[in-house]
């Protein structure tokens, strides 16, 4: 389980890093997206994995903290997803604007040989 999780995060992040170093803005955008997925997964595990722990819910009596899942990473990852999604959407708008104004999708706004 740990290995699968670590490999998934590693592959996502590695692909993301490779993509944000590419010259086309769409590749950079995809790279940022992949990296944000990797980071979200990483926050969710927060350094360790638990299985068979129910979420923290209000019951008749006080829940034992040792038997329920840590609610904080869940809250953090939700916030991170929302913010990451919004900023990536903003980058997409920029990208389209840049394509329209400069006529190229190169990240520098001009083709390298010009």
């Amino acid at each position: 389980m740990e290995l699968v999780m670590a490999l998934a995060i590693g592959i996502l992040f590695g692909s993301g890093i490779w993509l944000i170093l590419r010259p086309r803005s769409f590749q950079v955008l995809t790279g940022l997206l992949l990296m944000s997925y990797a980071v979200n997964l990483f926050i969710f595990t927060m350094g360790r994995l638990w299985i068979d722990r129910p979420p923290l819910t209000l019951g008749a009596h006080l829940p034992d903290p040792a038997t329920v899942a840590d609610p904080l990473p869940q809250a953090l990852v939700l916030t991170a997803i929302v913010i990451g999604f919004a900023t990536t959407a903003l980058y997409l708008v920029m990208m389209i604007g840049s394509r329209g104004l400069t006529g190229t999708d190169h990240v520098d706004g001009r083709e390298p040989d010009q």
Binding site: V39, F42, M46, G84, T87, Y91
Partner: peptide, 27 residues
């Protein structure tokens, strides 16, 4: 637009690093 593309890309990447750092500190 040209300067903004780079500014946004760099800051988005920095934000991802921020999140990784926060996650490790919490862990």
């Amino acid at each position: 637009i040209r300067a903004g593309m780079q500014y946004i890309a760099i800051n988005l990447t920095a934000s991802l690093l921020f999140l990784i750092g926060v996650a490790l500190i919490y862990a």
